[in-house]
Write a protein that binds this DNA or RNA. Structure first.
Lengths: 125, 125
DNA sequence: GATTTGTTATAATATATATATAACAGAATG
DNA sequence: CATTCTGTTATATATATATTATAACAAATC
């Protein structure tokens, strides 16, 4: 895969995996219906422990982005056709709040923040 | 102060403090030049340890949002008059990236994300 | 001069992170 | 159908992080 972990980072490995897989889905590198590598295979590929990958997969499942089929594998479950749930919006908002606050305090304006969002959307699409 | 910590949260207490103080600065509840409570006073107020507050203050100082005057106290140092540094922009971008990615994957569009940012800016100003 | 301040140090405890093995039972595959 | 692969579960260990508890120090404040 396209995953690249930084063992030295202060971000836990399983979080790095979760975020990068989400970015992979957002950017279309991982398409809906596509299978993820087995936890053992990906762990061996990255040189990390099986349980670390497993933890990431379960985090992704909790977020509703993949489906884990017991004793079988994990499959990407793209954007829900039924639309975005309130819980998902609130989750994004909860993550976004401290980012916007920090941006404002360091002196970024509304336009600057909007511009950053646009740039990231472009990078992730 | 206006701080409210959740001891049960998965977010570390010192991070909760850091984020809420940043929000306080962003919203003008804490103004530039204003003094923060002493680490001991705030710790007693919140029912947490002095070192937990101290850790938060140093995190804020590292971000350039307060200035710690040794053996004296901590003072809010509003938005830098010299403008936003590249490091600060990159920091915000690094925080923003996984949020935008998650938003996109759950089905939010560019407009939805922009709208969320606008809403948060409004709430924090 | 007494109090308050951030600083530093040490220690203890709890939780989180990551790894290492191992075994199990269902799924997939030949 | 037997082998292999899968996620699951369990146990154990090591390290890092988070939090609290005390204590002492020296500079700033009152």
């Amino acid at each position: 895969m396209f995953l690249q972990i930084e063992p030295q980072s202060d971000v836990p490995i399983y979080t790095q995996l979760t975020q990068q897989i989400i970015e992979g889905i957002a950017s279309g590198q991982l398409k809906s219906g596509e299978s993820l590598p087995s936890v053992r295979a990906l762990a061996a590929d990255l040189g990390v422990n099986m349980h670390t990958v497993n933890k990431s997969y379960h985090e992704l499942e909790k977020k509703g982005m993949i489906r884990i089929i017991p004793k079988s594998g994990a499959v990407v479950t793209g954007p829900n056709d039924l639309g975005v749930t309130n819980a998902q919006i609130q989750q994004v908002e909860r993550m976004l709040r401290p980012v916007v606050a920090e941006g404002l305090v360091v002196g970024l304006g509304a336009q600057d923040l909007q511009q950053l969002v646009q740039k990231l959307i472009k990078n992730l699409s």
